[in-house]
């Protein structure tokens, strides 16, 4: 097995607020191979963004990584100092955010915002950086690229701004691109264009991608592997086909069940499972999903379930996978007892 590009283990991040410690991420582990697209899905507040921000060293001041490691090409991202990290950001690892309307600086031309990234990481002249910026704009299909470099963000539509963000992210040929809900704020038709563009560029440039989304439909179309997060933890993990064919966690099943038909493009949004996610100030000591889970057992409230194998490359964090647990159709029925 080749060594993965990124190997995260037991990542835990908390926010220390006036109300107490918010345990936003609790022991997340995953691996990412070069050129792979990993989807992370989960309801709002499940810790998807904070997981990625922790890797990038971009937590706001009250947030701290309290445990874990994240090996990227043999270096632990979590122990790098600010200088080393900033040399990596936008260069080897870059990031796209959810809202293109607010993630570009309104008082600088978009060209400048691309060029400054190139100049930060490459020893090239300004003219060369400009040429590269034009090339990038053409790559992300912004029409009349050379002219548009001089425009300000407010002169672009949301979709075009997201293309600018992608151009910035790709400026230095990153090995890993983190896209945090890159299409959530966009119109449906624009969403598809941006996703298609991302997927195409990924194929062309061969970088690895972490794609965060609420939308299982997006995952199904784009990702190779999926991480389902809930309450700051990985609830289920596996290849897309496998996970969609045999969801092995009640939460994942809930997510899937809330989509009427995967082939019907209009309703990819999650309709929420009844109840709300746990308060991360006081996370339950057992399974975080227990208050909302139809299968919850006494054991679920008593202790946190470990990650069980649900297949060769498929894992799920649910007591139902314990050998002594009652079998539940659809989740553990097909499971061969250990």
């Amino acid at each position: 097995m080749s060594t993965p590009l990124l190997s995260v283990s037991n990542l835990s991040t908390s926010f220390f607020t006036s109300r107490g410690e918010v345990k936003a991420v609790r022991g997340v582990s995953f691996e990412l191979r070069a050129g792979e697209i990993l989807g992370i899905v989960g309801e709002s507040g499940s810790g998807k963004s904070i997981t990625c921000m922790s890797l990038m060293g971009l937590l706001r001041s009250s947030g701290r990584v309290i445990d874990g490691s994240a090996l990227f090409e043999g270096r632990d991202l979590l122990t790098l100092d600010e200088d080393e990290l900033s040399a990596l950001r936008g260069n080897d690892i870059s990031m796209i955010f959810q809202d293109p309307m607010t993630s570009l600086n309104p008082t600088l031309t978009v060209g400048e915002q691309v060029i400054e990234t190139i100049l930060r990481h490459r020893k090239v002249t300004r003219a060369a950086a400009r040429a590269r910026a034009i090339e990038l704009f053409e790559l992300v299909r912004i029409p009349s690229a050379a002219k548009r470099l001089r425009s300000y963000p407010h002169e672009f539509s949301g979709g075009m701004r997201q293309r600018v963000m992608i151009a910035i992210a790709l400026a230095c040929d990153p090995k890993l691109l983190i896209a945090d809900e890159p299409t959530t704020a966009l119109d449906v038709t624009i969403q598809r264009q941006i996703l298609a563009l991302l997927k195409e560029l990924q194929g062309r440039l061969g970088m690895a991608v972490i794609l965060i989304t609420h939308d299982l439909g997006v995952i199904a179309e784009t990702a190779d592997r999926v991480l389902v997060m809930y309450g700051g933890m990985v609830m289920e993990e596996g290849p897309v086909r496998e996970l969609f064919a045999r969801p092995s966690h009640p939460y994942t099943r809930g997510l899937l069940a809330s989509i009427p038909d995967l082939r019907d493009d209009t309703h990819h949004r999650l309709t929420p499972i009844p109840g709300s996610p746990p308060d991360m100030l006081r996370p339950p000591k057992g399974c975080p999903f227990a208050p909302r889970c139809a299968h919850a057992m006494a054991q679920c409230n008593a202790a946190l379930p470990p990650l069980y194998d649900a297949g060769p490359v498929h894992r799920a964090r649910c007591w139902l996978h314990h050998p002594q647990a009652p079998r539940v159709a659809g989740i553990t029925a097909e499971l061969v007892p250990a």
Partner: peptide, 29 residues
């Protein structure tokens, strides 16, 4: 990580596998 997870397949008392009472869940949360 996975190895340690699997070793957690410890014995669990049978009464722990009964459906949780909603009250218990609510009290927990």
């Amino acid at each position: 990580d996975r190895m340690t997870d699997q070793t957690v397949a410890i014995e669990i008392a049978p009464e722990m596998w009964v459906p949780a009472t909603r009250d218990g869940a609510a009290a927990e949360y």
